[in-house]
Each structure stands twice: as C-alpha cells, then as structure tokens.
Amino acid sequence: MPTAVRRTARSRQFPSAHQPGRILPEHEWLPSASCRVVDPELFFPSGRETASRADEEAAKRICRGCPVREPCLAVAIRGQEQIGVWGGMTTAERRRLAVEARRLQTLGQEEAGRLLAGEAVPVAATSRPAVVFHLVSAGWQEAAIADAMGLSPDSVRTLRNTAENAAAFRHLVPAVDEEDEAESFGAAA
C-alpha cells in the first residue's frame, strides 16, 4: 500500500520509500527537484478525484525540465503511487508504462523467434509491442515487421514507439510474476 503524500502550501513532501534498488535516496535528489518551489496542489490536487488536464500539463512541463525526473519517477513506480504527477507522468501513464515494461521482460520472445525463423505466427495484441521490440533489436526494419505480422507500417511504428518508451524506463520497474501483474497498480491496465 502506498504511503500517503502530505500536502502543504510551501513545500512538497514525498513519502518515505525504502524500496531496495532505488536510484538515489530521496534526501539526495529532493533538494534539486524543480517542484519544490511550486504549489503542491498542481501535482497533488486535493478535494477532487483527479487534476484538470491543464494542471496535469503544467505539472508535466515543470517535470520535463527537472534534473531529478528519473529518481522521482522511480519512487512513484516502485511505490505504486496512486495520486499525482510524479516524474512527469500521471498515475494512468505510470501504470501503462509499468505494464508495458513488464511485458517487454516477459512476452514476445517466442513469437519473435518464430517470426525470425520465417514462420507465420499469430501475435496477441498484448504481446505486439514486445514482439516489435525484439524484432527491431534483431535488426528487422518496420516494413518487414509489418509484412510478417500482417499490420500496417503505421501500426508497427506506434507499437515500436510504445515499446521503446517502456524500454527506456524498464530499469525502474521491478520484475513481477505474471499473476502479480494484475494486482499491480490496482489491477488496471
């Protein structure tokens, strides 16, 4: 269960998180966070279920220029934070990133191997980004992947972007068993 985040008007206080493998301890990166001088209401809206789209975008803009975006995102992903913008991502975005990163670790290798061997293989929609990632890693071009998987080049490009975004952050996502994946982040994907 995530630790509650305390909101104050002058400072943004983060939960204490003692998960192993965290990139930096909070006391080392928190003083450099761009959000420390911004009203925490922008990142953690109180009195309403979710932030407005404008508030989310404003918070993300601050995060994009933050020198400690990755450790902040790591705390939110590993702590399964359910509230607020952390590391430039909303809860829903962090949830999707974590699911895709885990899928890259666990799915698609068998299908990609069979496609590389020239076999016709049906690929489940949930495995497609991982299969595309593995095929690109093996040196395949998007057009060849589209032909082999029976997809449009635009679909392959979208799947590749999804996979590459998840791959860039997969070191932040702890590996879980497939049955645990449904429980992660409140079972939403």
Rank of each mutant, 00 (worst) to 15 (best):
L42W: 00
A120W: 08
D39H: 05
L107I: 03
R36T: 13
G47V: 12
R102Y: 07
Q82T: 13
R61F: 01
V85D: 07
R95D: 09
T90D: 03
R94S: 08
G79A: 13
R36Q: 14
G108W: 01
A59K: 00
P67Q: 07
G108L: 04
F44S: 05
F44I: 04
R102L: 15
W86Y: 03
T91W: 12
C35I: 00
F44A: 07
E119R: 12
T106V: 15
R64G: 00
T106D: 10
D39K: 03
I77D: 12
E41Q: 12
E119L: 11
A92N: 06
P67S: 14
L42R: 04
G108N: 00
A76K: 02
S34R: 06
L73R: 07
R36N: 14
G84W: 01
V37G: 09
A33D: 10
Q80H: 07
F43Q: 05
Q105A: 14
A54T: 00
I62L: 07
R102E: 15
P67F: 03
L42E: 04
R48L: 06
A74V: 04
T91H: 14
A101P: 04
G47M: 09
T106K: 10
L42I: 09
C72L: 12
E56G: 00
G108A: 10
G79D: 13
E41A: 04
K60Y: 04
G84C: 11
A101C: 10
L73Q: 07
E111Y: 03
L116I: 14
T91V: 13
I83A: 14
V37T: 15
R103Y: 11
D39I: 00
E93D: 09
A58C: 03
A120G: 06
I77E: 11
F44T: 05
G79M: 08
V37L: 05
S34G: 15
E81H: 09
P67I: 11
R36S: 12
A117F: 04
G47N: 07
E81A: 00
R96K: 11
L104M: 03
